[in-house]
Design a protein around this nucleic acid. Structure first.
Lengths: 187, 187
DNA sequence: ATTTTTTCTAAACGTTCGGTTAGTTATGTC
DNA sequence: GACATAACTAACCGAACGTTTAGAAAAAAT
């Protein structure tokens, strides 16, 4: 019927995700995106609507990218050990070649915490709620823990994960792994 | 000799600091600053050079604002208890009325981690190095800790502080205080 | 081969950005 | 009260922002 697209949408979203991950939303301009994605503004707009749409798509892509870690986490069956392993896996993936520093979700969480972009806030909250649910589930596998302890430890671990992601932008892998060890020392 | 300034520079820096603290550097425009500071662009530029200069001045103002907490921290003499108290004081100040969420230094650290603004990076590093030095000093007051343990625990506490500041943007005071308790449980 | 449909390039859109400047107003000195 | 100096207002600067559009290029359908 007509001309074919010369680019693959998933591939260019991957590239957009990287630049958002590295620089944040505000700092990333359409010009930078054009260059990094290797396609024209027109193509970006026809595929993703606008900058915000492309960012949301990048977020979704990021989530699907780390989905294997999440699935492994969910399926495991060793209680609190799974949470620790999940932290290790997150850090590990963070220091893999080709990945940017820190966690895109956490970065976004910080950048948009005072914003009123409901779509993005919804994405963030669903992510965090999901994580919290799994953590609580894992903690409940230890029958010696009462309800109050579980809630407290879950909040503690969520905050720790938050700090972990923030620290991953500036600390070494070794420092972060030491941090994980200490975090789980007395839970 | 000539006309007097109709504004107080410290007062308008205080206002600028708040808006940077709330929104970050990039998201804050000169227009927003004019409105919040209640003075004209001309006055901003004649007093602070440019947006970056105003931001640096805001950072300095922020530091002097939290200086009392720092001084108390330095002067105290109870080892690791002082660090814990410092964490509590930081959170407390964070939830005082009239203060924004989170820590301006940590926000800036995150926003500029991939930037090449040397002036700001220098400000950040000097701040973090200073904090680390004090923490190590406090940890050394416990003679039972060897050198390796001290370094590990210092890194742990720095990361925890980092996470604390990030979490302060989205969590409740109670959650954060629980987090502090758990952090110091076995140090 | 012509038509139809979609993607492409590239220029331009209006707006806002950070920053400047001409000219008026106020405050002091002589 | 005239003059000098500095602070004010407000219009304006070029550049960059996110976004749109006109028209060329390409591919399938007729």
């Amino acid at each position: 019927m007509a001309r074919k697209k010369e680019y693959n949408e998933t591939e260019v979203v991957e590239k957009a995700m990287h630049i958002f991950w590295r620089n944040g939303y505000q700092t990333t301009s359409m010009q930078m995106l054009e260059k990094e994605m290797g396609i024209n503004k027109f193509s970006i707009y026809s595929s993703f609507g606008n900058k915000n749409g492309l960012f949301l798509e990048s977020l979704k892509h990021y989530k699907s990218r780390i989905n294997s870690i999440f699935e492994k986490f969910k399926k495991a069956d060793n209680g609190i050990e799974d949470i620790k392993q999940f932290f290790y896996d997150s850090v590990s993936s963070n220091f893999e070649e080709g990945n940017e520093k820190g966690c895109l979700v956490t970065n976004t969480y910080n950048e948009f915490s005072e914003s009123e972009d409901l779509l993005i806030k919804e994405q963030m909250n669903s992510f965090m709620d999901g994580l919290k649910t799994i953590i609580i589930e894992k903690l409940k596998m230890d029958p010696s823990k009462d309800e109050e302890t579980i809630i407290k430890q879950a909040n503690f671990l969520l905050l720790a994960k938050h700090g972990l992601a923030a620290a991953a932008r500036v600390n070494t892998k070794k420092e972060i792994e030491d941090y994980i060890e200490m975090t789980f020392k007395n839970l």
